[in-house]
Write a protein that binds this DNA or RNA. Sequence first.
DNA 1: CCAATGCGGTGCAAAAAATGCACCGCCCGG
DNA 2: CCGGGCGGTGCATTTTTTGCACCGCATTGG
Lengths: 297, 297
Amino acid sequence: MKHLQTFRLIEAAARAGSMRRAAEDMNITASALNRRINRFEEEFGAALFERIPGGVRLNPAGELVLHHYRGTLSDLSRVQGQVADLSGERRGHISIACSQALLPYFLPREIARYRAEHPGVTFSVNVRDRSQAEQELASYSSDLALVFEPIYLVDFEVLHVIPQPVNVVMRADHPLARKAELRLRDCLDTPHVAPSVQYGVRHLLDFAARRGTRRVAPVIETESFDLIRHYVLHEGVIGFQIPIGLKRPDDGSLLFRPISERDLPTGNLILGQMRGRTLPVSSARFAMQLAAALRDI
Amino acid sequence: MKHLQTFRLIEAAARAGSMRRAAEDMNITASALNRRINRFEEEFGAALFERIPGGVRLNPAGELVLHHYRGTLSDLSRVQGQVADLSGERRGHISIACSQALLPYFLPREIARYRAEHPGVTFSVNVRDRSQAEQELASYSSDLALVFEPIYLVDFEVLHVIPQPVNVVMRADHPLARKAELRLRDCLDTPHVAPSVQYGVRHLLDFAARRGTRRVAPVIETESFDLIRHYVLHEGVIGFQIPIGLKRPDDGSLLFRPISERDLPTGNLILGQMRGRTLPVSSARFAMQLAAALRDI
DNA sequence: CCAATGCGGTGCAAAAAATGCACCGCCCGG
DNA sequence: CCGGGCGGTGCATTTTTTGCACCGCATTGG
C-alpha cells in the first residue's frame, strides 16, 4: 500500500540506525528519506528520532508510531483477506513462528493440508526459540506462534495447549533401550547431546537436573534438533526431543523413550497469537486447523 | 494526516453518493477524485463502489475498508495523545454522545472540571437518542456515550452504570404534589407531557403502561426535555425526567416525585464506549472522571 | 422518441510534489 | 587537527497529481 510508504521508511531508518543506510536499503537517496521523515515529524507534531552522533535512534514517540503502523498494516491485510473472502478468492499469507520440533512432520503435513484446500495462500515459517517467538508476535512479524514451553509474556494469547513429555532419542542398540521409561539420572549418567539453553526442552532438563543437584553436561550442545536426531545414529549417545518432532523410522534404527514424570515435568506445546489482535481470515482458519490437529494427536 | 487523504476521499464519496458531489465537497475536481479512487481500487485489488445510475454506492468491500480507515484514524489520534502525554502537553479532543438529561447540569459541570485541569482539551457534545448513540460509537464519531436505557448492541461496552428512576415533574401547586411517591395510574390519569418514543424514559413508560393495559396519552409529545421542564410551569400538567437532569429551583416552583418501583422499573444510565476500542488518553481519563462522578451522585 | 441532464471515465497539458545531486556544518576517532 | 560519516539544505530534474475539456452512457421529462 503506497500511502504507508513513509512508515516503511521510518521503520527502515529505525532498523538501520542511520538515515543514510536506510536510504540505501530502500533504494532512494538520503536526502529524500531525510525530508520525508522530517516532514512527517512536522505534520505529526513530534520528533520520532533522537539524532545521535553516528545516526538516529527511535525515541518513545517513534516507538508508538511504529507500533501503530504495524497494527495498521496487520489490520489492512486482514481487511484484504476478508474482501478476498467476499469475492470467493481466498488468498492471503500466513506467517508462523515455531519451534524446531514442528518442522519435520507436523507443520509440513498441516500446511500441505491447508494449501490443498486454499492454493492461493502462501506461508512464511520462521524458526524461533521460545523468547523470540513472542517478540515476533508483538511486532506483527508473525501471525501465529507454535512453541514448546514459551516464556509467558503479557502479549501472548494462548489458543491451544497440548502436553508434550520430553523423550529420549537413541539408537536401537543403546543400553538404555531396554527400559520402557527412563529416569533422569539414567540420562545424565549417559553421554548425551542436548539443545542449547534458549530452547524449552533444555530449560526443562536444566531445571529438573538442578533440583536433583545434577547438571546437564552434553557432549554436544547444539541449536539444531535435526543434528541431535542424526548424531545419535553415529555414536552411542542419547538425545532429547518432544514426540511431535519424532517419528519411528521404518528401519527401526531409532528409538524413543519417555523420561519419568517423577523427574521431569511434562512440557506444553502452545499455539498462540498476539493478545487482542484480530487475525486475518486465513491465519485464523489455519490456527483453527492447527488446534484441531493438535487435539487429535 | 496527509497519507490518509485517499481514505478521506473515499469516505466523502460514500457519504455524498456521487463522485462529483464528493469532489465538490473536498474542493477538488471530479476527475482527480475519480482517479484516486480508481487507482486505490486497483492497488487494493477490489472495487470499493458499485457504480449505479446516478452515482456510486459502497459495496461490502468498501464498507470494510472504510471501517479500517476509521479504526486507523482513531488509533492514530490515540497515539498522538500518548505522544502529547510524553511531552507533557496534554491536548486532545473528546467527543461524547449523550442523552438530553445530561445537558443542563451534569455534563457542563464535569466538562468544566476536566477543562480546568486540561485547558488544551476540547469537546464535542452530541445529543443522540439511545439508538443513534451506539451507531455513533460504532462509526468512531464519538468516543463515549452516556445514555439512559440504551438498546444494548454487541459493539457497546459498558464502562459504568447508575440507576435512575423516572421522576414526575410538576408545578408546586399540582394536586399530585401531596403524595411522596406516585403510582403510574396517577400519572396516566393526569394530563401529561411526554418525550417521544425514541427516548428511554418514554420506552419505560410505554412498557409499563402496556403491562397494565393502559396507554401513555400525552397532551404534548416532544423531543425536548427542556420544553417539558418549562411547560409544566405554564399548565397544571405533569412531565417526566430522570433525577440527573433535574435540580430543585431556588424559588420552589418545580417539584419532582418518583414513580413507584412497583409500576415502573428503575432505568439505567450507562456510560459506554465501542467494544474493544482503545480510547485516546484524554477520552479514557474523562471517562474515568465521569464514572467517578456518577458513582458519587 | 428525443433532447437535456447528470453521471463515471479519459487524454492532455499545467501545476505540484518528490527526488537526486552537490554541498554545508557538525561531531567523533585517530 | 583532520578525515570520514552523519543529518540537513538549495536547486534543478523527474515523477505524480491535478484541472480542464470532452466522451459515452443511462435516466428523465416533455
